[in-house]
Amino acid sequence: MPDSVTIRIDGQTVRVPHGTSVAAAIMMNGGFCRTSVQGEPRSAVCGMGICFECRAAVNGVAQQRTCQITCVDEMQVVTHG
């Protein structure tokens, strides 16, 4: 098993250790997950799929909880939805 995977976050190539969640990848890359209704930046809070603050579009499907999704090669992530 390769020890790292490469995904794209907002068009930027990001390499993360195998097993990293998408939310962790977004945060370690210095970004936010979503923009709130009033325009505030938000990122993961509960880390377990409850709070929905870590939503982003993954492989074209909007509003996904990125803390519950593990990065796999060539995954496309779009934040700030």
Binding site: V16, T20, A23, R42, V45, C46, G47, I50, C51
Partner: peptide, 30 residues
């Protein structure tokens, strides 16, 4: 789940649950 209580600024990125940050660390957040 954790009880998260509101206080001024609690929606800023970086403010997380205690177990929440632990879960994120387990999922690769350095």
């Amino acid at each position: 789940r954790e009880l998260l209580l509101p206080f001024p600024g609690w929606t800023l990125p970086g403010v997380m649950g205690a177990g929440g940050l632990q879960a994120m660390a387990k999922a690769g957040l350095p």
